[in-house]
Design a protein around this nucleic acid. Structure first.
Lengths: 223, 223
DNA sequence: CCAAAAGTGTTGTTTATACACCCATGT
DNA sequence: ACATGGGTGTATAAACAACACTTTTGG
């Protein structure tokens, strides 16, 4: 007990993750229900304490995996929150990440750290533990900004996707409709995607051509 | 000695600051010479350990003040660096900030923590301690990006400035010349600045009109 | 009168916006 | 045949880029 001693006081360091996806044409994010105090029973971002031999991003990925079963997602460092008093137990610095996952690739497997993990529509979030509401707002702000000048939108989609699906991503996050012809002209003019040759038959209507990201895995700055 | 004990290991948390200014038509940044090991005698970013009751930004400002005598500058959180091994003593998480200061307002008063503080041209930096070179590069990248879509450039200038001075800021950071007429059309069309009515007589040539930022203190997103 | 930086418009090109109909498919 | 989402072009407006000479001052 209390065996880790230092000559000067040290804060605790955690990572927390805001993981977005798009389901049912809504922007949703992943929360876990806390099984321990403080804020026991309340919804919170997945996250936890940094291991001393572990990189920050690795910690974020590990906690996400442990608490929700989700791996293989795109994560990017968001901001570091550290106001004194944000955790009632001790001084905690939280290095936060945000991430995007295609809704297909995600299966929830809640584990020991959390009693429950679930997706919530961004517009219908419950009250969150700690200052997590502030973190969520910052993540949303960053996501919306980055949509406009990077290829981050592709991270919401599987390897192959239709132009309508891509447009849906933009419309959902911007929460306003876009003109179909202008959108297609714009995205095709960027030289970011190419036809796969395949098509998707999706119901009683004309099949849609499938596209792929020319530089998958990498989020690039455009404009 | 070793009186601060925890049940789990805690990393140390520091803040480091990349402070830019423009002098002699060059982008310069502020370094201190380390007076203690590790990296004793090498140049490094101003910064130091977080006090447990102190906000992160306050820590950055305090260390900057203590080590260089500079206060009252615009600081913005940059990124958090925490790779294991980046400090040979113990695990250290560094929450970094970058800042901009008008060259007029800065007087260096090196203090006890550092033997020396000095400005270096960005293109002629000495070898830096820790991973500070990486931090500097990230700060420069962010500064250059932010110049294009925010009003951050004003932070390099005093309250009143001429359009040529403002253009010099843009040209210095982008390191390429801009067309004078297009620049003036562009910046005046943003509705960000206004004439003060005064003018600056600066040598044997026509005096320049002085302008001021309409919303001083606030860095806004434009475009 | 000379040197030096301040100031000022027009034109062509590129990029963004507004807008409506036909196409291929499954039932 | 019809309902459904997929696919396509043109015209106008706005933003950007290229470009050179006159003005005011101090010495």
């Amino acid at each position: 007990m209390n065996e880790f001693c230092y000559r000067y006081p040290h804060p605790a360091v955690t990572t927390d993750v805001v993981l977005f996806t798009i389901r049912e044409d809504k922007l949703q994010l992943l929360l876990i229900r806390r099984r321990n105090p403080p804020f026991q029973g309340q919804w919170a971002l997945p996250g936890g304490f940094l291991d001393l031999d572990e990189d920050l991003a690795a910690c974020a990925l590990r906690e996400l995996k442990e608490e929700t079963g989700i791996g293989n997602v795109y994560l990017e460092q968001l901001y570091t929150f550290g106001k004194p008093g944000r955790d009632p137990r001790e001084r905690v610095i939280s290095v936060t990440y945000y991430g995007l996952a295609p809704s297909e690739s995600i299966t929830l497997k809640p584990d020991t750290d959390a009693t429950e993990a679930a997706w919530f529509a961004f517009g219908e979030l419950p009250e969150l533990a700690f200052d997590h509401r502030q973190i969520v707002d910052k993540a949303h702000e960053r996501l919306a900004a980055k949509l406009e000048y990077s290829t981050i939108a592709f991270q919401f989609l599987p390897k192959q996707f239709t132009l309508s699906e891509l447009q849906d991503v933009y419309e959902t996050i911007r929460s306003e409709p876009m003109d179909k012809r202008n959108f297609r002209k714009w995205i095709l003019g960027r030289n970011l995607i190419e036809e796969t040759g395949g098509e998707r038959r999706n119901g009683s209507h004309r099949p849609a051509k499938l596209f792929r990201n020319k530089h998958p895995g990498r989020v690039e700055i455009i404009r």
